[in-house]
Structures are given as C-alpha cells and as structure tokens.
Design a protein around this nucleic acid. Sequence first.
DNA 1: CGTCTATTTGAATGTACTCAAAAGCGGTGG
DNA 2: CCACCGCTTTTGAGTACATTCAAATAGACG
Lengths: 199, 199
Amino acid sequence: MAEGSAIIDYIRRFVDINEEEASVFNTAFKKIFIKKRQFIVQPDFPVPNRYYVLQGAFRAYVVTEEGHDHTVSFAIDDWWITDYNAYLYQQKATMFVVALEDSMVLALDFTKEQELKIQNPKFETFFCRIAERGLAYQQRRVISNLTMTAEERYQDFLNRYPLFVQRVPQYALASFLGMSTEYLSRLRNKRVTKTKNNI
Amino acid sequence: MAEGSAIIDYIRRFVDINEEEASVFNTAFKKIFIKKRQFIVQPDFPVPNRYYVLQGAFRAYVVTEEGHDHTVSFAIDDWWITDYNAYLYQQKATMFVVALEDSMVLALDFTKEQELKIQNPKFETFFCRIAERGLAYQQRRVISNLTMTAEERYQDFLNRYPLFVQRVPQYALASFLGMSTEYLSRLRNKRVTKTKNNI
DNA sequence: CGTCTATTTGAATGTACTCAAAAGCGGTGG
DNA sequence: CCACCGCTTTTGAGTACATTCAAATAGACG
C-alpha cells in the first residue's frame, strides 16, 4: 500500500524513510476527488489543509476590491497548493483555490502535520525542505517580476513550464504573469499595439 | 554568555531551548564587523553563509544585463540576509549583498547549519519555522506586486516598515518596490506627471 | 445548436519609464 | 571651516509599455 504511492515517492526525494514510516505518512492524508470548478479554499473560511495534487490542476487567486483577480499559484500533478499564509498561521483564507480540471488530491490537516513533525524528525526535515525550496522559488519569482518585461515573463514561463501552458486557461496565466488577458493574447499572436505617432 | 544575546532571544521566539543548547547554537556563529559599502555576497562567488544582522543595514540586489539594479531584500537589526537561492543549493551567487551602514552580523556557515539541524531537532524546527515564514512573506510580496499600483506599494511599505524608509537610500527603495527612482521621487512629492491633453 | 465563457482585435488612454539636466547633500581635504 | 567632488534626489519633457473598454469571434458544454 505505502510503497509505489506518489506521495511516498515524493517524500523519498527529500528524506530516506522505511516502509513503516511510509505507511504512517501515507495514512496522515485523506484522498479527495475534486470536480472541475469546485473550490477547496475560499476567502473568510478556515484553511485546515494543504493539498498534494495527485492528478488534475488547480489555481490559487486573490480578488481585489475592484473585482480584478490575480493568480498567486498554479498546481498540477505532484505540486502542493493551499492559501499558504492562512494555513501556516491558521487564519481565515484570503484566496480562492479552485480546480481547473476534475482532480484527485491528498489533503493534509494542519494539526496532523504538526503531529507528524513531532513524531518523527524525518517528517520535520521533509516539510522544512519543501518550505525552503518554496521560499527560493518565490524569491526567483519576485526577481522575475522586478527585472523582466511582460513579454520576457511570458517567454520565460513558456520555457520553464511548458506543461502548465497547455492546461491552464489564458486569463489565469495572464493574471499569474501580471498582465491583462488582452495583452497576453497580443503577445501570443505577436501583435503588440503600435502607437501611431502620425498627427 | 549565551543568555541575553540577540540571536538567542530570536531563536527562543520559535523554540524552547535550555542554556546548554543556547550555548551550542551561539558558538555556531561567527561575529563579523562589516563596513559601509562592503560586500558580503557577490555574483559568481560561493555563498558559504547566511547572515543574522545584529546591528546595521544591508541590501541584496541583482543587476540586469542592461545595468539596471533591482533590490531583492533589505535587512536591518534582527533580520536575516544572504543570496538565499545560492546558499540553499550551494551554488554561485547571482546577487550582491552590501552594507548600507557600518554593521555587525553573525555569520552561519551552510555546513554548520546542517550539523546543527542533525544534532538537535529543535534547531531543525527553528530553521523550518523561519523558512516557512519567509515563504509566506515572499508570497505576500508577490501578491502586492500583482495587485497594487506603484503608489499603493509605496504607501503600503511606509505603513509596514517605517523604520526601513529612514535607513535606506531612495534609489534602493524604488528598485525594491519595482519602480524608477524618478517615479518614487515624484510620488513622495505628490507630483506625478500630468500628460497634457491640449493640442 | 444555442448559451455561456474565453479569446481576439481595435482604438484610446494612462501609468510609469527614459533621458537630460539641475539641485541638494555629505564627506574629505586643503 | 569652507570649497569642491561625487553621489543621490528632484524636475521637466517626451515616450513606451501595457491597460481599459467595447465589440467581434471562437470554443466549450449541455
């Protein structure tokens, strides 16, 4: 049961655990089927879980007062997703997390996560590693946003995450990259507006 | 020796350690004096350390091919700083980290950090906590950049980090907030250019 | 097929940048 | 102690990147 499961392969990329530990880890998760367009996190609700995506695709986004939405993160197979800030501090969510496809996830409860960490230092190490990597990733994203133009960010995303581009609607990608849907559309079709300087 | 030191007060905000543990932790760090304008990290050099700022101010930034610089992070008293991505993966730096004032730091060697983590789960927990918080912080920053205008980002920074604004040169703050020095100057003096629509 | 949502296209506009130059400020040396 | 030099900040003017709004077109789903 434990061996061969995706989440176990995943944790073993970071720490070396035996069969018994794998089994303990495995049973901490609840397997849930999520239908397309279903929300797993919503603003003002508690965030009891973080989610490991077995199969499918998700999008986390915030909505501003003016009604604009902004994609904070995507997740497909083998990625984690949740409103991390709310989960970590166990506060109400400020984001939506929605399924972009019919999906299968493993939900890990916050309390359960703390128990795992206390129970076995290897689990603590594991969560530490993924947090560290997440931090390094977010910092790279901040740098991209600071240093690149909209077109460069799009090209960069294409190179790094070609799989995502296939599975994610364009308005969601645009709002992830920090540009309007229309502008991304123009970039994709290489038809950025020429401002005509003729009088 | 151990008790009363800033780094010990700091770690005790996250984990409960006794005097002996405090002493072990303390001796893992090397205290270094850094003069204003001195670099502690430079592109293409290894990044053996992360730094805890006892006193002073630092700025981490990247420089693009076109020669524009972009502030990735600041650190003043009680904050950490380094090229985190390079440190974590033990690769060559891609950033500069420079002292903005005469400063005093505690340097922690990467290998030493790993030893601490292995030696005592509490230390592992501690580094895990600060990585988690760092991740949550970076994610908030990404959201700010996505959802706010230049002016809003500036106002928000003023509210959140009034201390920093005092101690950081304006060009550095501008490049942290993702805008040009000139534009920040105009915002501060509330004199954003009016495009005259008269023919 | 019709409806609903997503994408594309056009045109006008705005936010923020660039370049250039002046003004302010701080440190250093005579 | 003041003058000068280098660096930072301010101001002006023109411009570009990207947005908004509106409308047309294309896709997805029942």
